[in-house]
Design a protein around this nucleic acid. Sequence first.
DNA 1: CCTTTTTTCAAACGAACGTTCGATTTAATT
DNA 2: AATTAAATCGAACGTTCGTTTGAAAAAAGG
Lengths: 203, 203
Amino acid sequence: MKKGGGNITTLKERILNSAVELFYKKGFEATGVREIAKKANVSTSMINYHFGSKKGILKEIMEIFFSQMNEFLDNEHIEEKDLEHRLRAAIKSLVFALRKNEKMFKIIMIQIPEDDKELVNLRVENLKKIIFKKVFMNEFKGFDSDIRYDIIGPALSGMIFSHFLLKDLIPQITGATFDDNFYEIYPDYIADIYLYGALKKLI
Amino acid sequence: MKKGGGNITTLKERILNSAVELFYKKGFEATGVREIAKKANVSTSMINYHFGSKKGILKEIMEIFFSQMNEFLDNEHIEEKDLEHRLRAAIKSLVFALRKNEKMFKIIMIQIPEDDKELVNLRVENLKKIIFKKVFMNEFKGFDSDIRYDIIGPALSGMIFSHFLLKDLIPQITGATFDDNFYEIYPDYIADIYLYGALKKLI
DNA sequence: CCTTTTTTCAAACGAACGTTCGATTTAATT
DNA sequence: AATTAAATCGAACGTTCGTTTGAAAAAAGG
């Protein structure tokens, strides 16, 4: 029952970790409970016992993910007067937080069964409350009403989200590698592009 | 057998259209062949007869999609000298093309089973050859080697791809609606943000 | 130590899965 | 018109699915 490093990993955690790996790699629907149970070295009925159902794992993943995002993103609500600094700080913490939980993020964004209204609503409400409100909407308050907030906010969220959603695909196309060095510069580079434009970099 | 407007829709096309709708809405794995067959008003064995297998539908979807993308994007290789104009034209045609095939695009990007090497490779090669080479990589040739192409290209692709990948989710969060008016201005707005930065819009 | 509660197991359940099969129907060819 | 080829069907196949069940094991409580 002991795992290296002195940490005790409960059977429930083992199921959860195994599920995250498998859902990330193959998708929720394509992953069977027998496969999760085998990877976690438990019997399949433990999934129902601890999570209520296969879908219950998704619910738990979401609760853990949004709880952690709430924690990471809350730290950044320092009262910066300057939009640029606020945005840079927000981007930095968001990239940091998503990187820490990138498997859960991807699962939540694209593996939630759309016919499960409870899970779908849970996702929307938490995305709204924890990520969008803090990073992509509050930052743009108080500007002109002519501004297309429906484009300008999602443009930034799209840059960042897509990085994590397509993170396994992009290296196959561009040959990029995403190591620690990469993430040292990524947030500010993205912020530069977003705030000042790509031409500033190119010309 | 006749469908309104004089078009003859073959049984094979009916299967394909039904599959696209269902794969888009529920995902590939969560959609069963019986459901596709019922929606197309055929017997399930027709899927195997015409497509070889359930996965054969995905292959056909990819072939159709990339064939159409190749057609739409090819028209934009006019010899513009100016980077800005080239990028604007490329963004415009890409948004137009993706909008026309947005269901197939989403299916291809997130519903291909990762353990099917043939389909995965087919996706990578065609994305590379038809979309990235034409829009996100050729446009940046000839600039400084200091430039992080691994960030600057995917930043633009991410803005646009994520729009279509998350198109059902974003309206639930921001209340945005994506009608024809929206798409009238979207490409140039995105190009503005990308080329000159969001600050230009806000300040 | 005994009793109760909780956890865990393996087997079983009923349903659903994608594919195959042989018969029939339709279309094409001679 | 007869024959051949292609398309279509419904039933069946073997496998897999998520969940339930009762027994056993482990943990907790008095």
